[in-house]
């Protein structure tokens, strides 16, 4: 059990870094397309066209998974620094995981269905 927790911590830190790098690239691509390529890029037609393109769908899924993992894992990491009650930590951990899973499921559903 101790060993599993140790490896879990190692993975968490490692993936925080990996997703950080993915976000750096992903956010540049995302902002370039959404923000700096003209308002036409977020019209119904443009979004529809992208969401019919498998490359964009894969990009969006990877981007979504990265941002959700990074954001929520980051919150899980710093939460115990502000919340000291062990019971409350467990409760918030559960809440954060449920919210993260919901966000990912919704996003993947929207992107693929």
């Amino acid at each position: 059990m101790k060993r599993i927790i140790e490896i879990k911590r190692v993975i968490e830190w490692f993936f925080q870094r990996i997703t950080g790098v993915v976000l750096l690239i992903g956010l540049i691509v995302h902002f370039q397309t959404m923000h700096y390529s003209g308002a036409g890029q977020i019209s119904y037609e443009a979004v529809f066209a992208r969401l019919s393109n498998p490359y964009w769908i894969v990009f969006n899924i990877v981007f979504l998974l990265s941002v959700t993992y990074h954001g929520f894992n980051g919150l899980l990491g710093i939460m115990p620094e502000y919340v000291h009650s062990h019971k409350m930590q467990k409760v918030l951990e559960g809440v954060l995981i449920v919210v993260a899973v919901t966000v990912v499921s919704l996003g993947v559903y929207i992107l693929t269905v």
Binding site: K2, I5, E6, R9, V10, E12, W13, G77, I78
Partner: peptide, 14 residues
């Protein structure tokens, strides 16, 4: 290494 990679160890460094 085992003695520093627990919850109150290395990963608390931000």
């Amino acid at each position: 290494l085992e003695k520093i990679i627990h919850n109150n160890g290395l990963w608390r460094c931000r």
